[in-house]
Amino acid sequence: MTIEKQVSTSRAPEYQADRIFVDRWSPRGFSREEIPETVLHGFFEAARWAPSAFNSQPWRFLYALRGQPEFETFLAPLIAFNQDWARHAAALIYLLSKKEFTAPGKSEPQFSRTHSFDSGAAWANFANQATAAGWAAHGMSGFDVEKAKAVLGVPDGFAVEIAIAVGRKGDGAHLPPALLQREQPSSRSAVGAFVARGLFPERFRG
Rank of each mutant, 00 (worst) to 15 (best):
T73Y: 03
K98Y: 01
T102E: 11
D171H: 01
R188D: 10
A148L: 11
A91W: 06
L92R: 09
F126V: 10
W123C: 07
A12D: 00
F81H: 09
H138N: 13
E33L: 05
I93E: 02
P51F: 13
G120W: 01
E108G: 00
L96P: 12
S97C: 11
Q68E: 15
F204Q: 02
A132S: 12
N128I: 15
K99G: 00
Q110S: 11
P69K: 03
A159P: 06
Q83W: 11
S8E: 14
E100A: 13
Q68M: 05
A127K: 07
E183M: 13
F200N: 12
L40E: 04
H138Y: 06
F71G: 09
D23E: 15
A193Y: 09
R11Y: 13
R87D: 02
G120K: 02
S186I: 12
Q68G: 10
L75P: 04
G139I: 03
H115A: 11
Q129S: 08
V22F: 06
T73G: 02
A196Q: 07
A90K: 01
D84P: 00
Q129A: 13
A76H: 11
F204I: 02
F158Y: 15
F200P: 03
L179G: 08
L40R: 02
A89Q: 07
W123M: 15
Q6L: 15
A173K: 13
S26V: 07
E45F: 08
V191P: 01
F143T: 05
L96Y: 11
G153H: 09
A193F: 10
A50L: 04
A103R: 15
G206K: 12
V7W: 08
R24H: 14
L78H: 09
Q16V: 12
L180P: 02
S56G: 13
A47N: 10
T9Q: 15
L62W: 03
Q129H: 05
S186L: 14
R19Y: 02
S141I: 09
P13H: 10
E108I: 00
S107C: 01
P185V: 10
A193S: 15
E100P: 02
G206F: 03
D144P: 06
T114Q: 08
E33T: 11
F126Y: 12
A89M: 08
G67V: 05
A196W: 08
L92A: 07
A103M: 14
P36Y: 10
I79K: 06
I35E: 10
R66N: 07
Q129I: 05
F30R: 13
A193T: 14
T114Y: 14
P201W: 04
N82I: 09
N55K: 07
R60N: 10
A76Y: 07
P27G: 04
K5G: 04
K106V: 01
R87I: 06
F54C: 11
R48A: 07
I20F: 04
L95Q: 07
L96W: 12
A196C: 03
F158N: 05
D84I: 00
T38G: 03
S31N: 06
V7E: 13
R188H: 13
V151T: 14
I3K: 12
Q184D: 01
Y94Q: 04
A127Q: 11
R87N: 02
M140Y: 07
P185N: 12
P201Y: 07
Q110T: 14
A80N: 13
G120Q: 03
A137D: 09
F21Q: 10
